[in-house]
């Protein structure tokens, strides 16, 4: 997983994506904010969802409490 380290913590890319999802955002909005290719954002968001750091709200992604804790 490009966004999750073997110890379960977010990588630098994961932290950036979680930071960008503090306000619910679409993958397109996050890609534009972070100046990242959309395919990397989509794949990273999927990684972060799998471990429960993000949740989907319609077309937007929002950081979860668990995601917030992972940033501490």
């Amino acid at each position: 997983m490009a966004c999750i380290s073997p110890d379960g913590k977010p990588t630098e890319l994961g932290k950036k994506l979680l930071g960008a999802a503090k306000d619910p955002s679409t993958p397109e909005e996050i890609a534009s904010t972070l100046i990242l290719p959309l395919f990397r954002v989509r794949s990273g968001l999927r990684d972060l969802m799998e471990v429960g750091y993000l949740k989907e709200e319609g077309e937007k992604y929002k950081i979860t409490d668990k995601g917030f804790k992972s940033l501490e």
């Binding site: 997983m1 966004c3 290719p37 959309l38 395919f39 990397r40 989509r42 794949s43 990273g44 990684d47």
Partner: peptide
């Protein structure tokens, strides 16, 4: 090399 990717991750490009 950049994580697990789906072909559909590239839609729009």
């Amino acid at each position: 090399t950049q994580g697990k990717l789906k072909l559909s991750d590239f839609r729009g490009s």
